[in-house]
Amino acid sequence: MARAVGVKLMQKVSSTKLFAKIAPHFIPAMDKAVHKLTRGKVMLSARMLPGVILTAKGAKTGEPRTTPLACMPEEGGTGWLLIGSNFGRPGHPAWTANLLKNPEAQVSWKGEDIAVRARLLEGEERAAAWRAVLGFWPPYATYQARIEREIRLFRLERR
């Protein structure tokens, strides 16, 4: 019961414009630090939403870029959905451009490094995934309503 109340509260807070303004500056940095200190076993933000640490080649530099991201694990442990919401701010997050150019990447999931291939979802496949994502974390609808761009959804599958 207490967890459900906490989740509802976090959903409400994460839907605000203030959260969208502030969160991108501290959540990723906090997650990277804790993830490194715990050798990949803990991400603080994953206490509310599951998360991965994505490592992908930069679209412009080709250098590895590491980004902590909320994700939606798929049934049977076959993959993950990544949501390019950018906290409901204009502009696609940089990691989405990286995956578009370099779809072979790696995630750290619960302390395990896993090679993945990313695929941008489109059409009915995207629509079905979007419905699932909204059922999983309803604030994504608020993010989409605030911006003109379509939020990118990627499916990561184990390689």
Rank of each mutant, 00 (worst) to 15 (best):
Pro93Gln: 01
Ser85His: 06
Gly123Ser: 13
Thr78Gly: 13
His25Cys: 07
Ile114Lys: 12
Ala23Trp: 03
Ser108Glu: 12
Val7His: 00
Lys32Phe: 01
Leu81Glu: 07
Leu100Ser: 02
Trp80Arg: 02
Gly76Leu: 02
Thr96Gln: 07
Gly40Gln: 01
Gly123Met: 13
Arg89Gly: 00
Gln144Asn: 06
Lys17Cys: 06
Phe87Cys: 04
Trp95Met: 08
Arg39Trp: 05
Arg149Phe: 04
Phe87Met: 07
Lys101Cys: 07
Gly76Gln: 04
Lys12Ala: 11
Phe26Ser: 04
Asp31Tyr: 09
Ala132Gly: 10
Lys110Met: 11
Ser15Lys: 11
Thr66Gln: 15
Glu75Lys: 13
Ser45Leu: 08
Val52Gly: 02
Val34Glu: 06
Val107His: 03
Ala4Ile: 14
Ala115Lys: 15
Leu81Trp: 09
Leu9Lys: 09
Gly88Cys: 09
Leu100Ala: 10
Leu49Cys: 04
Ile83Gln: 08
Ser14Trp: 00
Pro64Trp: 11
Lys36Phe: 10
Gly62Met: 09
Asn86Phe: 01
Leu120His: 13
Phe154Gln: 04
Ala2Ile: 15
Arg3Ala: 05
Gly135Asn: 14
Gln144His: 02
Ala33Trp: 15
Gln11Val: 00
Gly135Arg: 12
Thr16Cys: 08
Thr16Ile: 06
Lys110Asn: 11
Gly88Arg: 02
Thr142Gly: 05
Ile114Gln: 13
Arg117Glu: 15
Met72Val: 08
Ser14Ile: 00
Met30Gln: 10
Cys71Asn: 00
Arg131Ala: 15
Arg146Ile: 00
Phe154Val: 07
Pro28Gln: 11
Gln144Lys: 08
Leu44Val: 14
Pro50Ser: 05
Phe26Gln: 01
Arg131Phe: 04
Thr142His: 10
Leu82His: 13
Gly51Asp: 07
His25Asp: 03
Gly135His: 12
Lys60Met: 09
Glu124Leu: 14
Glu150Ala: 03
Leu69Pro: 01
Asn102Cys: 07
Val7Phe: 04
Met43Arg: 02
Glu150Gln: 11
Thr67Ala: 07
Met30Gly: 06
Glu150Trp: 02
Leu69Phe: 10
Thr55Glu: 12
Lys60Arg: 14
Gln106Ser: 12
Gly77Ser: 06
Thr55Tyr: 03
Glu157Arg: 14
Asp113Arg: 09
Trp95Asp: 10
Pro139Glu: 03
Pro73Lys: 10
Leu156Arg: 11
Thr96Trp: 06
Pro64Cys: 07
Gly111Lys: 02
Pro138Tyr: 00
Cys71Ser: 03
